[in-house]
Design a protein around this nucleic acid. Structure first.
Lengths: 236, 236
DNA sequence: ATGGCAGAATTGTCGGACAGTCAGATTATC
DNA sequence: GATAATCTGACTGTCCGACAATTCTGCCAT
């Protein structure tokens, strides 16, 4: 069954260093907002060359554990933002040739749940974000790209209003995957805009009135509608 | 409202290079399995120093777009594996101090859906994977860590059997988050083992017989049970 | 084909270097 | 005294050159 010997993988120095720093961050020895020591200093501490430190830092930077504000020189410990992390997942999924059906099933699982909790917990500010995205969709009559972006923002706003970071982070990668399909949909299915607009209104209404079950139901219908539109459009 | 000028962010060379290579990969100019040119060669092509190339490469390596097999020297284009990508998401969530309730709600959204599709589409091999994880859970009577790992594997196996990569990739990050809670649960709630075991049997049975709705329902009950156990244990 | 081997190629790491820039201290100006 | 201009030091981004260890490759013998 299991092998007698495990393949020994020697971790290069830059990886070990990255792991060590990451651990300090995860265990909060280095706290969010703290400035990282300078590269030269780190090189001294770890007893390696600065080039090696830089390679290690690149890893953490990609993970979103380190970052720097606009025009800031020193690196600081940051909390990985959903967008940053989820873009990696999106790309991964894109490379795996995800089908629309797969995406749709995942949306069916996540978005209604998000809507339901959003109705239960949304703050006024979050509600405002929702209506704003919806308004933007209505006004983007000619610009397809703008309309698509507005739809994505709507979903994002719902997820944010759910007050659930896990759901929000699970939802985020779906957005990017949705873009290509949605673009075609809006472009080629005439009634798509009206239907989306109507659905968003219903959903917002339910969330506004804190009717969880209604919010979930409307969102389900909304997502189902996507599939219908897709099937309408694809055979053509 | 909006500023007249946008802050110009100069992308350092290593980032631009990373982006260019990434684009070649995403658009499939560089195809999965292809070997990347040597660092020296890349340095020549981009007209930069090898150190700069190396920093760029580190980024792509972290993203899982580049990798090398055991004992291989040259880097090859790889497809980002779910485990690799999801670990980043998990860490991000951990740093955001996710509550058990958040995790639980996400599980409630994703796992039943995965079970449902697994019942519809599982292959014999996937079914075997499920039973194997379940068996391992039964046999790990004393070892808590082993039992926890078996539970995680069970969820992973269900997600894999769903035949939906998006769901699988959405589910993966939940596993790591589940570990700490689950460990306590199994350790401190006496009846936990028996209940988990029973639930897994029911779920496997439903998936085996391709009864989607049943699979979903049993999974829902299973997840609900976690919350009950958690609430039982936490006030203590 | 298979196995073994020398040489070429490649990676990991190192040391040092330099221009550009950001932050803080210092000085000049109103 | 408050503000603006200037200086200084530290730090990052990038480059060059170098070397040991390991992998890859083509060639030879079996």
């Amino acid at each position: 069954m299991s092998d007698l010997f495990a393949p020994l993988d020697d971790h290069p120095a830059y990886r070990q260093i990255a792991n060590q720093i990451e651990q300090r961050i995860v265990e909060r020895t280095l706290r969010t907002g703290d400035a990282l020591p300078s590269e030269t200093d780190l090189a001294r501490q770890f007893g390696v060359n600065r080039s090696t430190i830089r390679e290690a830092i690149r890893e953490l930077e990609v993970h979103g554990l380190l970052g720097r504000g606009r025009g800031e020189k020193r690196l600081r410990v940051t909390r990985p933002e959903p967008r940053r992390v989820s873009s990696g997942v999106s790309r991964a999924l894109a490379l795996h040739d995800v089908t629309f059906l797969e995406l749709w099933e995942a949306m069916m699982a996540i978005e209604p749940a998000a809507a339901q909790y959003a109705a239960a917990r949304r703050t006024p500010a979050q509600l405002l974000g929702l209506t704003r995205a919806s308004t933007r969709f209505k006004s983007d009559i000619t610009d397809t790209a703008g309309a698509v972006a507005a739809v994505v923002d709507f979903f994002t706003a719902v997820a944010a209003a759910s007050g659930n970071q896990v759901l929000a982070l699970s939802q985020a990668p779906l957005n990017l995957l949705l873009v290509p399909t949605l673009t075609q949909l809006i472009d080629r299915v005439p009634q798509a805009r009206a239907r989306i607009q109507a659905a968003q209104s219903k959903i917002i209404g339910a969330i506004k009135q804190k009717k969880s079950e209604q919010a979930r139901t409307w969102m389900e219908k909304h997502i189902r509608d996507f599939k219908r539109g897709y099937e309408l459009e694809v055979p053509a």
